[in-house]
Design a protein around this nucleic acid. Structure first.
Length: 511
RNA sequence: GGCGAGUUGGCGGAGUGGUUACGCAGCGGAUUGCAAAUCCGUGUACAGGAGUUCGAUUCUCCUACUCGCCUCCA
């Protein structure tokens, strides 16, 4: 069996991965707080751990891997967002708004992550559905002397857990010296963190032995991983920024609540996302949601390609290195996909190259795998290329289609035939005129051989053309439909109508 | 101040104690009515210093620089 080696943050080195139970390999990844569209930074761990999930499924079998990723749907950021909506005139109760907001955000998240080719985890628990388990775990911590109630809060006593700080390599005393912790009078130690806190009447809250309240941020992952994966499991993942305090606190809670188990065996952390070399932040104005980026890319390429472009840019950086989103990287990724699409034209079978598995098994060396794919493309081994690319979540049918040079384009096809004849007769004036006129309408012709020509659609230009058309032409083309330009590729009916419209017009001019 | 990661050719990005992946760009050529695409060829880089060694980009130490975390953050 392939040996997987992973960099374990816990030991700070690469180690051979051995599951606790090869029949049930278990992985938990910290998911998003659902109050807004997922941004690029949210997407990175999704894609990174998707690659790992695929690898585990390949090595241990699809039925022998359990992947859990949570939704944090109780959080002060959510409350704040809901209040904002309320102040903006929303008349529903805060709780109704919160429910609607989190539901909608989860739908968005699914749509966006699906677009990136990420497989859905086996379980996607919502924090609010595990309050009972959290309360039980908190009570257990109090009973064992690791937590205490004070003024409606329950706090974890960090001094009761000598290992606290081990994952992130810091000591409680050092951190206090840093003195950036909230000092609350009811805390025994400044580093003590909240397990439970009181809620106002308006805020979401649940009854508990400590009064009506809601859980602190960290306890949900401890409670849900325990419920779904057991007290000990194999891999716990998330962004490096979660290493402290979130994961440190999870470890403290879980290990104290279940002292006989070892909680997560391997800890994996992905590095952060940058944009054009700079940290992505709202203040720098380089903050993108996945949806923003997809919309932008979909202006110039089919939808599915846009998703794979983002995916490829994301996985080509090693997960423990900062990932830089640049326009150049997106272009390069697109070109790579086209190249592979061409190399797999007419390929029917798929097989996975073992060298791709071997590369990924070495701490997810995706670039090593891509090197293999490039080699397969160069050597013309289409089925290994297709199978291996698919394994990485790339080269879906829609993406392969971008390479296809010939396709029936109705009336447009007639025009292309006319032009091919003109070229054959060396009537280049006529051939170039056809190309020029189509270009005026945003349809670019690319000759691939003496007889094969591929049309490409320039969406911006088409938008301009449409805006400048007489009203009746416009209405004929658009019909009653709501026309959104970036979606031209997704609207076959419109696309066909437009091609026919242009082709007839140009044909008319030629006669 | 504390903790951590990193510094490889123009850019991105692997890897190795001695034979310099790969991709993009560039350059040269082929092909092409033109445009685009495609194909072939081409690149001796490993932050600086000291040490270990027959030999270090690869190991050790130091220095410099970059980045992240320490506060909500993926």
């Amino acid at each position: 069996m392939t040996e997987i080696r992973l960099h374990n943050s816990r030991t700070r080195r690469k180690q051979p991965f051995a599951p606790l139970d090869a029949q049930d390999v278990r992985m938990y990844v910290c998911g998003p707080t659902v109050y807004d569209r997922a941004h690029l930074g949210n997407a990175r761990p999704v894609v990174v751990f998707d690659v790992l999930y695929r690898l585990l499924r390949h090595v241990y079998g699809k039925k022998h891997v359990t992947y859990v990723r949570n939704f944090t749907d109780v959080d002060d950021k959510i409350n704040a967002r809901a209040r904002m909506l309320q102040e903006g005139g929303d008349t529903r109760s805060l709780n109704e708004i919160i429910r609607a907001l989190t539901d909608e955000t989860i739908d968005w998240y699914h749509a966006d992550m699906d677009a990136l080719g990420a497989l859905r985890p086996n379980h996607e628990p919502r924090a609010t559905e595990f309050i009972v388990q959290m309360v039980a775990m908190i009570q257990g911590l109090i009973d064992k002397g690791h937590a205490y109630a004070a003024e409606g809060h329950v706090l974890f006593d960090v001094r009761s857990y000598p290992e606290y700080g081990k994952l992130s390599g810091r000591s409680v005393d050092d951190m206090i010296a840093g003195a950036r912790v909230e000092v609350a009078p009811y805390k025994r130690d400044p580093m003590d963190f909240v397990l439970w806190k009181p809620s106002s009447v308006e805020e979401p809250g649940w009854d508990s032995p400590w009064g009506r309240g809601r859980p602190g941020w960290h306890i949900e992952c401890s409670a849900m991983s325990h419920e779904l994966l057991g007290p000990a499991f194999d891999i716990h993942g998330g962004g490096i920024d979660l290493q402290f305090p979130h994961h440190e606190n999870e470890i403290a809670q879980s290990c104290c609540a279940h002292p006989d188990a070892d909680f997560a065996n391997f800890w994996l952390h992905n590095e952060m996302v940058q944009v054009e070399g700079k940290k992505m932040s709202k203040s720098l104005g380089n903050f993108f949601t996945v949806r923003d980026l997809l919309d932008e890319l979909e202006k110039r390429m089919p939808k599915r390609v846009a998703g794979e472009v983002i995916r490829l840019v994301m996985i080509k950086s090693h997960y423990r290195q900062p990932m830089d989103w640049t326009e150049a990287a997106a272009k390069e990724a697109e070109a790579t996909l086209r190249k592979w699409a061409r190399a797999t034209e007419n390929v029917q079978s798929e097989k996975i190259d073992q060298r791709v598995i071997d590369a990924l098994s070495d701490d997810l060396n995706v670039w090593g795998a891509i090197t293999v794919l490039n080699e397969l493309a160069a050597n013309g081994d289409g089925s290994a290329l297709l199978g291996s690319a698919r394994f990485l979540g790339l080269l879906s049918e829609e993406v392969r289609a971008i390479s296809q040079a010939t396709e029936a384009y109705f009336d447009l096809q007639k025009l292309l035939i006319l032009r091919a004849e003109a070229r054959k007769e060396k009537n280049f004036a006529r051939a170039d005129l056809i190309r020029k006129r189509l270009d005026d309408f945003g349809i670019q012709l690319v000759d691939q051989s003496a007889t094969v020509t591929a049309p490409k659609f320039e969406v911006f230009k088409i938008e301009e053309v449409i805006q400048s058309l007489p009203p009746e032409d416009k209405e004929n083309l658009l019909g009653q439909e709501e026309y959104v330009v970036p979606r031209i590729f997704n609207n076959k009916a419109f696309s066909d109508r437009y091609q026919s419209f242009v082709a007839r017009k140009v044909l008319g001019e030629l006669e």
